[in-house]
Amino acid sequence: MLSRSDDPVAAALARAAGLICDDLRALAASNPVVLIDGCSGAGKSTLAARVAEEWPLVGRVQVIALDSLYPGWDGLDGGVERALEGILRPHGRGKLGAWQRWDWERATEAETHAVDPALGVIVEGSGLLTPATAALGDVRVWLEAEEPVRKRRALTRDGETYRPHWDRWAAQERAHIARDDPRSLATRIIEIP
């Protein structure tokens, strides 16, 4: 097994987490919002976990993965809208937010989770950086990685569950990139090998 220093992806994500933590310190805010976008397999969940581990501010941080909000395999835009309405807008107004987990096996909404506006929040997921969400994010990250590498990582991670859905999900990601230009909305662009 490769150590983090021997694994170029792990090393890139570690550097990215350090930069994001520097950005958070510079904000001098007690409850910042970090948005992490990138196509499937780019490393969003791993980066979010690293930033949460290294969270440089007092108190805990809430980490929310859009994988828990997307309403099914055709729901990239729907998941982002759910995050905007249930998490980001209330948080930005200093109000308690809430989101419902999507139960992928039953194809229905499940339990509800609260989002404390007094705490920082990291939201990560494909499709996340849009003009509406970017206006509510203090640190906005776009992860860039080549498709063959991303696909290999995603299918290694999720296996046969994801394989039949890769193309339709990738088409939604391409539509998001063409429509929203998330790279231009990012405060940090991170290249992942």
Rank of each mutant, 00 (worst) to 15 (best):
A175T: 12
L76F: 09
L88D: 01
A42V: 02
L155V: 07
V63A: 07
V33D: 10
C21Q: 09
P193Q: 11
L19Q: 15
A110H: 11
S68R: 03
S40E: 13
V9Q: 04
V51D: 01
P8M: 07
A118Q: 13
P148L: 08
H113Y: 15
P56N: 01
L84F: 06
V141L: 00
D23L: 11
G79S: 03
E173R: 02
A11E: 14
L57D: 02
A98M: 13
R89P: 02
L155G: 03
M1N: 11
L84E: 05
G75S: 11
N31D: 14
L76H: 10
A110F: 05
L47R: 00
L47T: 03
S5L: 09
L57I: 04
C21R: 06
A42L: 05
G86I: 07
I190N: 00
R101G: 02
R106N: 04
I177A: 13
W55Y: 04
P182E: 01
A135Y: 09
G127W: 10
K44Q: 01
E124K: 03
D167H: 12
H165G: 09
K95V: 03
S40Y: 07
P148T: 06
Q100W: 06
D22G: 14
R174C: 10
P8Y: 12
I177S: 05
D67H: 05
T161I: 10
L47V: 01
I36V: 00
P131F: 14
G75Y: 04
V58I: 10
V51K: 01
W169T: 05
G78H: 11
D74Y: 03
W104H: 06
G43T: 00
R174H: 14
T133V: 07
L19P: 04
A135G: 09
N31A: 15
H176V: 09
G72S: 04
E173F: 03
P131W: 14
Y70M: 08
A118G: 13
R152C: 05
E124F: 06
I64T: 02
C21M: 10
E191Y: 13
D7A: 04
I189M: 11
I122Y: 03
A175N: 05
H91V: 00
W55G: 01
Q100N: 13
P32M: 09
V61R: 03
I87H: 01
S3D: 13
E53D: 15
G18L: 03
A29R: 15
A175F: 03
T130V: 05
T161A: 14
R106H: 07
L88S: 00
